[in-house]
């Protein structure tokens, strides 16, 4: 009993620990730069974080099942291209806009459920299946566009990525909605519970009557759809569909999830953790920018922070 409460507080502490690191970061940058702790800058941080953070929410589901989704960055590009391409078909803007968003989301849903199908049906490692899809969608993006961005989009489309509602950037609002929903789904629904069970012990989960194939297909579909959401937002922000959008996003996203304390071996982690992880990295980048730290040095520092965060996670397991 003593043991249990002991590890309980230790776990609590390290969850706080990663949050505490974020607070320290805030305090440090507030001291170092007068521009950091302003409403405008902080909103800017959330805007910059939103694209990868939205994907990281989906990736959390995948990693909780002990899987991985490497295709997210390419889905970002392909969904963006399909969405912007839809806008160029000549359909009146009022009809084309919802259609474009829908088409983009379908790309994500298809990619994710296809990955899930392949992984569960043929029992192939998620790493391999999503690695293949990463190449497929990236290639498809270049094939469809012949390597050129999709330009000259209707004005209304850029509202999604650049507009504000009551002063708050729309991507930030979407990110908050995604995180609240993901948190509720993971914590309070059967599906969420099953995600943890499958990641904890897939055979025991199956023998407890959980349809593990459905759960796995579900998490990859979620990851695909949320990647598509980001893809559409990114295209809107850039006001173009770029075939090379989202390159290397998978690494930023996985970093956010892992820094947030979700175990790569599955069964343990949280959406709140991922949010903190994503913000930690975004704040670091923003602060270093304000301090005029060069981007090469930034990369080194971000890497160091990821290592330190994972180290913290190791201590938690002891």
């Amino acid at each position: 009993m003593k043991n249990e409460t002991g590890s309980f507080t230790l776990r609590r502490f390290s969850e706080l620990g990663i949050g505490a690191v974020l607070v320290v970061e805030f305090l440090a940058f507030s001291q170092l730069s007068p521009y950091f702790f302003t409403a405008e800058n902080l909103l800017n941080v959330t805007l910059q974080a939103s694209i990868t953070a939205i994907i990281a929410a989906g990736m959390t589901f995948v990693i909780l099942t002990a899987g991985i989704d490497l295709s997210v960055g390419s889905v970002v590009a392909f969904a963006g291209i399909v969405a912007t391409g839809t806008l160029k078909t000549g359909i009146p803007v009022t009809a084309a806009l919802p259609l474009a968003i829908f088409a983009g989301l379908v790309v994500g849903a298809f990619s994710g459920s296809f990955a899930g199908f392949f992984i569960t049906r043929f029992n192939i490692a998620p790493f391999i299946v999503t690695l293949a899809l990463m190449t497929v969608w990236r290639g498809a993006s270049f094939v469809v566009t012949e390597g050129r961005p999709v330009w000259e989009l209707p004005e209304a489309f850029s509202v999604l990525g650049t507009g504000r509602l009551l002063g708050v950037p729309i991507p930030t609002i979407i990110m908050v909605i995604v995180y609240l929903t993901a948190h509720v789904v993971l914590k309070y629904t059967r599906f969420g519970r099953y995600v943890f069970a499958v990641g904890g012990n897939i055979e025991a989960a199956r023998l407890a009557g959980i349809r593990t194939h459905r759960v796995l297909t579900g998490v990859y579909t979620i990851s695909g759809v949320l990647s598509a959401v980001s893809g559409i937002l990114l295209a809107s922000r850039m006001n173009s569909g770029q075939p090379n959008a989202g390159i290397m996003y998978e690494l930023d996203v996985i970093a956010a999830v892992v820094v947030g304390g979700t175990s790569l071996s599955g069964g343990r982690g949280s959406i709140v953790g991922t949010f903190i992880g994503a913000m930690l990295i975004a704040v670091l980048r923003n602060g270093l920018n304000l301090l005029n730290v060069g981007s090469y040095v930034q990369q080194v520092m971000v890497g160091v922070v990821i290592l330190l965060a994972v180290l913290l996670d190791q201590f938690r397991k002891r």
């Binding site: 943890f196 904890g200 069964g267």
Partner: peptide, 17 residues
């Protein structure tokens, strides 16, 4: 190996099915 989800608590293991 085949019955319990070690990462889960007593409550979650009881109600899982």
């Amino acid at each position: 190996r085949y019955g319990l989800i070690a990462e889960m608590n007593v409550r979650e293991n009881i109600t899982l099915s």
